[in-house]
Amino acid sequence: MIARDWIIVLVLFGAVSGIGYLIVVDIANSSTGYDVGNMTDDAYQARYDTLTDSSDEIYRMQTATSSKEGMSVTSLFTTMFSSTFTIIGIVFGSFSMATTTMNNFGQDIGMSAGLSNLIFGSILVIIIAVIVFVVISSVSRGRL
């Protein structure tokens, strides 16, 4: 198992747990579900929600990698690969646009906002993690 797999499985675990919890909440709902009382457990999210924590870490990695400090790690190669870094900056900058588009797409096909955020958010976080690790691996000359 390489480092990126560990990050991805944390996101996957949180996403699947979250989807399961959304199913439970929807079924227990008094107006749209079967109105089953005492079925939801708020402590469940605190115990098993790895998505929020790992997403924050990955966004922090994204910011660190695309920032000037992150790029200056490879100062010897900066002149040679300056166009590559520009492309990386554009790619990282496009994630906010992609998030909005994906969420709107999910809501247009009838998904609830929570589910849309969960599914497309986790997909985007996984993509960011893979790209960040590709960048880091190319700089560190090892597959992380």
Partner: peptide, 8 residues
């Protein structure tokens, strides 16, 4: 639900 997440 947790077992399902672990299976994924």
């Amino acid at each position: 639900i947790t077992v399902m997440a672990g299976a994924v």
